[in-house]
């Protein structure tokens, strides 16, 4: 790995197991956003190298990891901004029935169907980082049409603006709004069903 030589990283190098774990998370994140393995590898490598220069300033692995991921987010955002790849041809995209058919959660008048009306969630804050929750989230995310999941993560995790997402994927602003709406509706419904419902 490229960062092994630098002297500043004595702190982080103390725990290779930690670094290895962080690296796996980083790769998963970068692949999800960038699609290409090579680009993801590069982004992770650069982010790690950059982050570890300042590693000595961080007490504790959690803080260091947060820092590393923040750097990676910036890297990924840079790559996405720079990429002038001509986006998915419109023909390849799933058709967006903009105004036509309503998502099945709503009835013909556009009101919630009884079974699909959002219920209150009991306080879920504490649970977000549990492995069970993450497994459910993973399943729900993977159930979305790939483009929906990707746009949702670009927006909520990489925190790209609508314009940037449009430029990257060649979508119109209203497409992005529709995609995000669909993604949120579907994710929310899935999480409610599989996590927050509690069989009640």
């Amino acid at each position: 790995m490229a960062q092994s030589a630098s002297p500043e990283i004595a702190f982080a190098a103390a725990d290779p197991a930690f670094l290895a774990r962080v690296r796996i998370d980083m790769l998963r994140f970068a692949r999800l956003q960038l699609g290409h393995d090579d680009e993801a590898e590069d982004a992770v490598q650069e982010a790690l190298a950059g982050a570890l220069k300042n590693a000595a300033n961080f007490r504790g692995e959690a803080a260091l990891k947060t820092w590393i991921i923040a750097i990676l987010k910036n890297k990924v955002a840079d790559v996405l901004r720079q990429r002038q790849r001509r986006p998915t041809p419109v023909s390849q995209m799933q058709t967006l029935d903009q105004e036509g058919a309503l998502p099945a959660l709503f009835d013909r008048k556009g009101m919630w169907r009884d079974a699909d009306r959002p219920a209150r969630w009991e306080d879920p804050e504490a649970d977000l980082h549990s492995s069970q929750f993450l497994a459910v989230f993973d399943a729900c995310l993977n159930r979305l049409p790939p483009q929906q999941g990707r746009v949702f993560m670009m927006r909520e995790v990489v925190e790209l603006g609508t314009q940037e997402i449009c430029a990257e994927l060649g979508l119109s602003i209203s497409n992005v709004h529709v995609i995000l709406h669909r993604a949120r509706l579907a994710l929310r419904a899935c999480l409610q069903l599989h996590w927050f419902h509690e069989g009640a």
């Binding site: 998370d25 999800l32 991921i69 969630w121 929750f133 989230f137 993973d138 909520e156 949120r184």
Partner: peptide
Amino acid sequence: RQLPRLGDAAKAYATNSEDKDV
């Protein structure tokens, strides 16, 4: 109320240690 939590969940998902691959 739940919209911001979806965002939090996505962030938790992207940064959490699960030794699952992509």
